[in-house]
Amino acid sequence: MARHLLVPGRGIPRPEHWLRRWADAHPDYRWAPRPPGPPFNLADRVAALHAAITADPEPAVLIAHSAGCITTVTWAGRHAGPVRAALLVTPPYLDPDWTPGPDDPPDYAFGVVPRSRLPFRTVLVASRTDPYTTFAQFEQYAEDWGAELFDAGDAGHIETASGYGPWPDGERLVAALG
Rank of each mutant, 00 (worst) to 15 (best):
residue 1 M to Q: 14
residue 2 A to G: 12
residue 7 V to L: 08
residue 8 P to M: 00
residue 9 G to D: 03
residue 11 G to C: 04
residue 15 P to T: 12
residue 16 E to L: 13
residue 16 E to T: 12
residue 17 H to G: 04
residue 17 H to Q: 01
residue 20 R to C: 13
residue 21 R to M: 13
residue 21 R to T: 07
residue 24 D to M: 07
residue 24 D to C: 08
residue 27 P to Y: 03
residue 27 P to R: 08
residue 29 Y to D: 05
residue 29 Y to T: 03
residue 30 R to H: 12
residue 31 W to K: 06
residue 32 A to M: 02
residue 35 P to R: 09
residue 37 G to L: 05
residue 38 P to R: 13
residue 38 P to Q: 13
residue 38 P to A: 15
residue 39 P to I: 06
residue 40 F to H: 01
residue 41 N to S: 08
residue 42 L to Y: 04
residue 43 A to L: 03
residue 45 R to G: 04
residue 45 R to W: 10
residue 47 A to T: 11
residue 53 I to G: 01
residue 54 T to F: 06
residue 54 T to V: 01
residue 57 P to N: 00
residue 58 E to G: 04
residue 60 A to W: 08
residue 61 V to I: 15
residue 61 V to K: 11
residue 62 L to P: 03
residue 65 H to W: 07
residue 68 G to L: 11
residue 69 C to S: 04
residue 70 I to C: 07
residue 71 T to H: 04
residue 74 T to G: 05
residue 74 T to F: 04
residue 76 A to D: 05
residue 79 H to W: 11
residue 87 L to M: 08
residue 89 V to H: 14
residue 91 P to G: 05
residue 93 Y to I: 13
residue 93 Y to F: 15
residue 94 L to K: 14
residue 95 D to A: 13
residue 95 D to K: 11
residue 104 D to Y: 01
residue 105 P to S: 07
residue 113 V to A: 00
residue 118 L to S: 08
residue 123 V to D: 01
residue 125 V to I: 09
residue 126 A to P: 12
residue 128 R to Y: 12
residue 128 R to Q: 15
residue 131 P to Y: 08
residue 131 P to H: 06
residue 132 Y to M: 13
residue 132 Y to E: 11
residue 133 T to A: 14
residue 134 T to L: 09
residue 136 A to N: 11
residue 137 Q to D: 07
residue 140 Q to C: 11
residue 140 Q to V: 04
residue 142 A to T: 05
residue 146 G to T: 07
residue 147 A to R: 07
residue 149 L to T: 03
residue 149 L to Y: 02
residue 156 G to E: 11
residue 157 H to V: 09
residue 160 T to E: 15
residue 161 A to K: 14
residue 163 G to R: 13
residue 165 G to D: 14
residue 166 P to M: 02
residue 167 W to T: 08
residue 168 P to N: 01
residue 168 P to S: 09
residue 168 P to I: 01
residue 169 D to A: 15
residue 169 D to Q: 15
residue 175 A to I: 02
residue 176 A to T: 09
residue 178 G to S: 07
